[in-house]
Design a protein around this nucleic acid. Structure first.
Length: 234
DNA sequence: AATGGATTCTGGGTAGCCGT
DNA sequence: ACGGCTACCCAGAATCCATT
């Protein structure tokens, strides 16, 4: 999927208050942009990093610009947490996801229980598959994508929900959307959140389908290019 | 009084839902 | 069709409270 307008390029001045970032544009002016990633963004917050940002058509927005990607050691890394879900949905509709080809419909943001929402419910007339999509931006060494980049209680809750659904007889899947193309494999960041890593392994053993997709990321667009091998052992 | 642990609050955008 | 409300994204700062 391509951006409707080419992104603008700048340098990161600071990222603060979870949703805000200041960017120095190419003409030297500094603008405050919306940062659509409330995570820790480990390794993507350094002063002076090259960034790409979009401009919204929505006139009611307080901040018209949105931070889309950060360049680290020559590789663009997508930070907008909206794209992983859209990438998944588009690829599903285009029947490009081998692992989910048997499902016919795709419903986003489905309620499961009172206070939990999962990203997608895929169905056939007789089967259900619940899917949770996670945005992955972290790569610390050896071309290995890692998740999470901070302790994630919510992520653990989602994993537990997927396991519960599996127990009830439904299919369940956790999809890691790696928004950078300089990775050749995926593993949980055991040192950052050991209990999440354990839970992920447990979920995998229970039959929750774990998939990591690699994406080509550039200021013109973001596209899924393939699956990454998993290293789930702790 | 000082410390540390626990809890609460904040921020912008989006999407779904409900009532009008 | 709209406006209002809420959950979600979930780290980090601010505040509160208990222990020493």
């Amino acid at each position: 999927m391509n951006f409707s307008k080419p992104l603008q390029i700048g340098r990161l001045v600071r990222r603060y208050k979870r949703f805000l970032a200041d960017i120095e544009c190419e003409d030297g002016s500094v603008v405050t942009v919306h940062c659509p990633n409330s995570g820790s963004m480990m390794g993507l917050k350094d002063l002076g990093l090259k960034v790409a940002f979009s401009m919204s058509d929505n006139p009611t927005r307080k901040l018209p610009y949105t931070l889309e990607m950060v360049q680290v050691e020559g590789a663009w890394v997508g930070v907008n947490t909206q794209w992983p879900n859209k990438l998944f949905q588009n690829a599903f509709v285009a029947e490009k996801l081998e692992a989910f080809k048997l499902y016919k419909t795709c419903q986003p943001e489905v309620r499961v229980g009172m206070q939990t929402r999962l990203d997608f419910l895929l169905t056939t007339p007789t089967q259900r598959c619940y899917v949770e999509v996670k945005n992955v931006t972290l790569m610390r060494n050896e071309s290995c994508a890692e998740f999470p980049d901070a302790v994630t209680l919510r992520g653990a809750k989602h994993l537990q929900t997927l396991m519960d659904l599996r127990d009830q007889g439904d299919a369940a899947s956790l999809v890691f959307m790696v928004q950078r193309e300089d990775c050749t494999r995926f593993r949980p960041a055991c040192d950052i959140d050991p209990s999440y890593a354990k839970l992920l392994q447990q979920a995998y053993q229970k039959g929750v389908v774990v998939i990591a997709y690699s994406c080509k990321v550039s200021p013109t667009g973001i596209n899924i290019i393939g699956e990454l091998p998993l290293e789930l052992e702790i």
